[in-house]
Amino acid sequence: MTSNHSANPTHLRSHIFHGLAPGPRLLVTGAVHGNETCGTRAITQLLEEIDKGQLSIERGTVTFVPITNPLAYQRKQRMGDRNLNRNMAPSAIPQDFEDRIANVLCPLLDAHDVLLDLHSFHTGGAPFVMIGPQNNTGALEPFSHAAEEMQLALHTGPHRIVEGWLDTYARGVQRRVAAAANGGGTRAQSLVTDTNYGVGTTEYMRSRGGYGVTLECGQHDDPQAVQVARHAILQTLGLLGLIAQKPSPEPMEREILRLVDVVDREHAGDTFAREWRSFDAVKAGEAIGTRDGGAAIDAPADGFIVFPNPRGEVGQEWFYFAQRRV
């Protein structure tokens, strides 16, 4: 009998540990994007330590999902059929591999109180952690756990905290809808113009009454990113009381930035003015890039470049613009 190793994965693996005393329910995810493997490696290390008795889960529940998108991981790329960390919702009629994963992952998120989602990024730059909105009762992202989420973010390790994800995405979706008015109706286009497009793991978690953070542990290939992920997992376990070890104190230094815009790559010929790193500072009017037709893209104000992706797909995010929280 022969096996087809190139076939799409057929299951999602999770590892669940129940402490013998009551406590919160934590979900830790790695490789939501298949080429972001620092979380996978850190989780694997800690699973071995739990099995050897070197780390004990004493309270509550922790579930580890080392490879959240097994198709993208198998292909060693960001996505399988599409970006799992966008349009996160159950699908009555799944259209692609990520829809099928979401149908398993969403109930898993529903069953937990807190999420630690471990990622990495394309270009150079220091680790940072992303949080959700302030407490509010608005229509876009109502929320009531801002204090707990900030405490979790501060304990993960990085001093830099970034907010403003979903409302920035809402503005980006509005622009895509306007640009697509005269275009075709492809699956990819329907996804990026969906009002749910900005919803990923943490946004879904908040919509279900929980809270969580996205930790960007460093550049994809930086070995130190694994240690950043490992430290964050142990800090979270300690903060929530799932292990006996207390977390290290919050960093004294902190910087809070707010995403204010997302700029899409409109053509394969769009180019950056230089090799940007996340959180490179720019002055108002400074050149960021050039469109294929020659139009300049300049900084609208003093701020910072976030998630620059020189290999970004046409019609998807190219970079973000952030400013200090006022």
Rank of each mutant, 00 (worst) to 15 (best):
residue 1 M to N: 10
residue 3 S to I: 14
residue 11 H to R: 14
residue 12 L to D: 03
residue 15 H to C: 12
residue 18 H to F: 14
residue 21 A to W: 09
residue 25 R to N: 07
residue 25 R to S: 07
residue 26 L to P: 00
residue 26 L to F: 02
residue 35 N to R: 07
residue 36 E to W: 00
residue 39 G to V: 08
residue 41 R to S: 14
residue 42 A to M: 03
residue 43 I to S: 04
residue 45 Q to S: 12
residue 47 L to Y: 01
residue 48 E to S: 13
residue 49 E to W: 05
residue 49 E to F: 01
residue 50 I to Y: 03
residue 52 K to C: 15
residue 52 K to H: 13
residue 55 L to N: 05
residue 61 T to G: 04
residue 61 T to H: 08
residue 70 P to S: 09
residue 71 L to H: 07
residue 73 Y to A: 11
residue 80 G to I: 00
residue 84 L to S: 02
residue 87 N to Y: 01
residue 88 M to Q: 06
residue 89 A to V: 12
residue 91 S to D: 11
residue 104 V to H: 10
residue 104 V to E: 14
residue 104 V to A: 14
residue 105 L to T: 03
residue 107 P to H: 05
residue 107 P to Q: 09
residue 109 L to Y: 00
residue 115 L to F: 00
residue 115 L to H: 03
residue 116 L to C: 05
residue 120 S to Q: 06
residue 123 T to S: 11
residue 128 F to T: 02
residue 130 M to S: 12
residue 130 M to Y: 05
residue 133 P to Y: 01
residue 136 N to E: 07
residue 136 N to C: 09
residue 137 T to I: 15
residue 138 G to K: 08
residue 141 E to M: 15
residue 142 P to Y: 03
residue 145 H to W: 10
residue 147 A to R: 12
residue 147 A to T: 12
residue 159 H to L: 14
residue 160 R to D: 01
residue 165 W to I: 12
residue 167 D to S: 13
residue 171 R to P: 06
residue 173 V to S: 05
residue 175 R to E: 11
residue 176 R to F: 03
residue 179 A to D: 13
residue 179 A to W: 04
residue 181 A to L: 10
residue 182 N to V: 11
residue 183 G to L: 15
residue 183 G to V: 14
residue 185 G to R: 15
residue 187 R to V: 15
residue 187 R to S: 15
residue 190 S to V: 10
residue 193 T to V: 11
residue 196 N to F: 07
residue 196 N to T: 10
residue 199 V to D: 02
residue 200 G to K: 03
residue 200 G to L: 07
residue 201 T to F: 09
residue 202 T to L: 10
residue 203 E to L: 08
residue 207 S to I: 02
residue 208 R to T: 13
residue 221 D to E: 13
residue 223 P to S: 12
residue 225 A to G: 06
residue 234 L to I: 10
residue 238 G to D: 02
residue 239 L to T: 02
residue 239 L to E: 02
residue 244 A to T: 12
residue 245 Q to K: 07
residue 245 Q to W: 00
residue 246 K to P: 09
residue 252 M to K: 14
residue 252 M to F: 11
residue 256 I to K: 09
residue 257 L to A: 06
residue 257 L to T: 06
residue 261 D to S: 15
residue 267 H to E: 14
residue 268 A to I: 13
residue 269 G to W: 05
residue 271 T to S: 10
residue 271 T to E: 08
residue 275 E to I: 11
residue 279 F to Q: 04
residue 280 D to G: 09
residue 281 A to F: 02
residue 284 A to P: 01
residue 286 E to W: 02
residue 287 A to E: 15
residue 293 G to P: 04
residue 298 D to P: 08
residue 299 A to I: 05
residue 301 A to Q: 11
residue 302 D to E: 02
residue 310 P to N: 08
residue 313 E to P: 01
residue 314 V to D: 03
residue 316 Q to L: 14
residue 316 Q to R: 13
residue 317 E to D: 14
residue 318 W to E: 04
residue 322 A to D: 04
residue 322 A to W: 03
